[in-house]
Amino acid sequence: MSAVPLMSVEDLSVEFRTRHGVVRALERVGFSIARGETVGIVGESGSGKSVTAFTVLGLLPPAGRVTSGRAVFGGLDLLTASAGQLLEYRGRELSMIFQSPRTALNPIRPVGKQIADVLERHANLPRARRRDRVLELLARVQIPDPERRYHAYPFELSGGMCQRVMIALAVACSPALLIADEPTTGLDVTTQAGILDLLGDLSRTAGMATIMITHDLAVVAERCDRIVVMHAGHVVEQAPARTLFARPRHPYTARLLASTPRAGAKLADLTPIPGAVPDLRGETTPCRYRTRCERAAAVCDRPPLPREVVAPGHVVACARPL
């Protein structure tokens, strides 16, 4: 990790006001990412991975509210930045791609135009050059026959093709950070690998940092430098990828690893994680994994949740780590 990270999220808490009470979706979440680094954020659905991304981009739905924390990106705290500043940053300095690419694109606008819209907003290109640049981008994300695809609508393209368009749209202005939220969910396996390779390629060649959000450890295993494990709105463990896979310290991470298929493993070796992501309404226990944890003990109920640095770059939020 370099001395000054590209973005550092500290102490981030977010709550949602719903009909059934306040949901503390994120509690004191913290992690950082260096220039050019690829970080994976892993967890079950409902663990707060996507909420973290949306908060950083200032795209929380109206019911959501940031109650504490900072997200410093290039010297600017994104959480207190003005709407105008954020607009300048989004799409140019940091951008995001989403799952289900077909619905994430405007259904009634040609995909080339949608990419051109981003260029028009952020890149200082004359109108005539904009089209060429879009074609370049489409070629760069390996879309065959860019001339023809420029005028295509999302419904005329396959899911994988739409995701490539999304990527082209997100990297159009060479952002320093790309957040990929489940970029391969809903795509078939061969397409998945292609998309992930493309993302890896782009970040290597352009020196672009990438945050890869996924529920699938297999996706991040080989492609990420570091991994952040989230559970129920907490960061429970973060470590360099190799370390995390070799020696997980948080019971949840260990369970997560055991429930992920790996080459050479037998089906019987797979073990599910007991219980479900706990209800986050109202008061919660200091450790939110407590009710599912086989190592739980009295010490786990003592606030605050510990954050122990067990090795350089390896932090565990557990009173009784493995």
């Binding site: 795209l59 989004r90 140019r92 994430a104 907003r121």
Partner: peptide, 9 residues
């Protein structure tokens, strides 16, 4: 959401 994430006006 995509359009907003791309920082469109």
């Amino acid at each position: 959401r995509t359009a907003r994430a791309a920082g469109l006006a």
